[in-house]
């Protein structure tokens, strides 16, 4: 037990050093250093030894929790050694096919298939509006400076409810020029003003054209939050060119240890829940 506590303490100390170091890259160097990795390996070894010592005193929670951490460390180790990850900026064009993914250190790796982004689409929430009243202190100023914020209002059931100031139906704010746009500003009868706030993204998706090595092509939709698995790669839609939507940012990962890590996380969570259901009390000094 003392060894495990000592190793955990050392791990905490190193994590702390990384957490307070200025600059993410310096911290990352520390977390990938032989010293840190060595402590992690010893920590994993201590957990295995602890499980071995307690083998006769079988407790599902104990083994799931400790075994879960071992699985996570083993899977993370596999990912560290054999995993590949790549960040891609892909133009929205059927003709721009990417076959090699850039990886760390300026190199590239053969993806095993061709990837192009055929189309991209963003759905946005209706914009909220800022309700502004004339500001007597700023009288005489320009239009933008002559108002103060009275509150924010949100469209609900097609209506902007302004309380005592009445209601503004959606059709008065949307599409005055027939282009499907929301008006930037709307002056109310009492001189107050509604100003449009930036609309937030609701969802975005891209249609990918994937060409396998045998020339077979398929179209698949990649959505934010929903990774797509193809030829052992997991593809993620991360973001997009905000201004013109001409390219999308993808993240690609091939990680042979991922399954171990996910299984380990579930085992750890199940293990601690089972351990908490046990009665408290008792002491152990087994490892």
């Amino acid at each position: 037990m003392k060894i495990s506590v000592f190793l955990t303490g050392t791990l905490v100390f190193l994590l702390l050093a990384g957490a307070v170091l200025p600059g993410d890259e310096v911290a990352l160097e520390l977390f990938h250093s032989p010293l840190f990795l060595g402590v992690v390996v010893l920590f994993g070894g201590a957990l295995v030894a602890c499980m071995g010592r307690n083998f006769r005193r079988w407790s599902a929670g104990f083994f799931l929790a400790h075994g879960g951490v071992v699985l996570i460390l083993a899977g993370a180790g596999m990912g560290f050694v054999w995993g590949k990850k790549s960040e891609l900026e892909v133009p929205v064009s059927e003709d721009r096919v990417i076959r090699r993914f850039p990886v760390g250190g300026g190199g590239t790796v053969d993806a095993g298939f061709g990837l192009a982004v055929k189309s991209f689409q963003v759905e946005r929430h209706p914009p909220d509006y800022a309700l502004c009243r004339p500001d007597p202190k700023r009288e005489g100023g320009d239009k933008a400076g002559g108002y103060e914020l009275a509150g924010k209002v949100r469209l609900k059931n097609g209506v902007l409810n302004l309380g005592p100031l009445g209601r503004v139906p959606e059709n008065e704010l949307k599409d005055p020029g027939g282009k499907g746009e929301w008006v930037g500003e709307c002056i109310l009868d009492n001189g107050w003003v509604l100003r449009r706030l930036p609309a937030m993204d609701r969802h975005y998706r891209a249609v990918l054209k994937l060409t396998d090595s045998n020339g077979e092509t398929q179209e698949r939709t990649l959505e934010v939050n929903r990774p797509l698995i193809h030829c052992g790669w997991r593809l993620y839609l991360m973001s997009y060119d905000n201004e013109r939507q001409r390219h999308v940012a993808l993240f690609a990962r091939r990680d042979p240890g991922r399954g171990f890590v996910v299984a380990g996380i579930w085992a750890l969570m199940a293990g601690v829940v089972l351990m908490a259901l046990r009665k408290t009390g008792g002491e152990h000094g087994a490892c």
């Binding site: 990384g18 993410d24 911290a27 993370a76 990850k85 939050n225 993620y236 991360m238 993240f251 890590v261």
Partner: peptide, 11 residues
């Protein structure tokens, strides 16, 4: 994070 950012851990 594994579902959204492509990695269960990002330091």
């Amino acid at each position: 994070a594994d579902e959204v950012w492509g990695g269960y851990w990002s330091w």
